[in-house]
Simulated assay, not measured.
Amino acid sequence: MDTTLRPTTAGGTGGTLGTRANASSRLVPTRSSGSVDDTAAATTAASAASAAPLRANGSAAKIASGLQDQVAGAQQALDYLERVSNQLEALKGELTAKLAGTRNGSRLQLEVHARQLAQTLAERKKTGGGSIDNNLNYSTKPATQRFRIRGLDIASIKQSAPLNISFSVGSAGGPQMGVNIEPDQSNQEVARALDRALAPMGVHASLDENGELVFSTPESNWSSVKDSIAVSGRGRVTTEELPANLAPQLWNVGTETGNADALRQSLREVVQALERVHRSQAAASAALQAASAQVSDAATPPPDMTIAIDDFGKVAANTDYESLIALTSALVGVSRDRVLALLGLR
């Protein structure tokens, strides 16, 4: 609802303020031919009627705030990935030099770089923006923890088919969700059926790159899931967290000569991690640009708002009595919080 200030004559007592839906927001000087008390009463009524548009703008402010959070998260992810990329490049150079036997292949330098990378990876949940998983993959969704359920794999499930499996998640048992597995279902169909059953509990199922069954849940939910999954007929089951592909803290780089095979494996892990980091940087950059564009669009005032601003400016430029009455009528009841909410949209 937009507020229109217009003269209204009622029994010759004075000007009042009227509101009507879908009217353009134009400020019109109110002619007063009655007492000041009449005008004050009318302006008080108008201030109550004008609250709705500011509440609507408050909703837009919340949307803009959510977009700003997305921008901040993507920027934080990019900063973290840049730091990891630089450390991986340094490690790649040290490992290559050591394998080549050049003078630059210092054991001490290699150990220092490996420790630095391990520390940075350990800080991922705090400094990575919440959307980078332990394998350095970026997503606009919260990072997930992948895991397996011991004894629950594609081979054993299909061997026991036809089969009905019920799952529950929660320390008190929680609601149970069941799924039917038929002998003629493919591995992918089995995974999709399990995923549909577990999704309401915040857990998902899929096949990994080797065709094995793997489960996942948001990292923020992992602590409440890992020890509370129950399967019909087996009770609580054991979950096994899948470790990160890159684990520099486990590398054997402490000897002067070093194990050539171990060093080559470490180099392969570094190269593969660099490829994932570069893909994640591209994805985070695209997400940042998209969110920034949405923030810009949300901050652009609609045409009616621009017209209202122009009209208000014209009335404010006049210092005659009628203009002052119109301005006072428009500003009665406008609090500091409402002004800040409007400014937040710009």
Rank of each mutant, 00 (worst) to 15 (best):
A199S: 12
P53Y: 04
M201S: 15
L345T: 05
G151L: 07
A56R: 14
T257E: 13
E269A: 14
T319P: 00
T96Q: 14
D310R: 14
A308S: 13
E322P: 00
L78V: 01
G93P: 00
A61Q: 12
A23Y: 04
F147V: 05
D79H: 06
T44W: 11
A143N: 06
Q87W: 06
A100S: 10
E82N: 11
L327S: 03
G93Q: 14
Q249V: 00
A341S: 15
S24R: 13
Q119H: 08
A52K: 11
N86G: 11
A46W: 04
A326D: 06
T328D: 09
G254Q: 09
Q188R: 11
E322L: 10
W222F: 10
T9L: 12
L136Y: 01
F215E: 02
L163H: 04
A205W: 07
A244P: 03
S166H: 04
A21M: 10
T16F: 08
A21C: 03
T102A: 07
A197K: 06
A143R: 05
V203W: 08
S59G: 14
R107A: 08
G258I: 05
K62Y: 12
E82V: 03
E269W: 01
N259Y: 03
L152S: 01
S139F: 07
S24E: 13
T102F: 09
A61K: 11
D304R: 09
R83Y: 01
G202Q: 06
T44N: 15
T102W: 04
L327G: 01
K126H: 10
A282D: 08
R276T: 15
Q265D: 13
N104L: 15
L108R: 14
R124P: 00
L17W: 08
R276S: 09
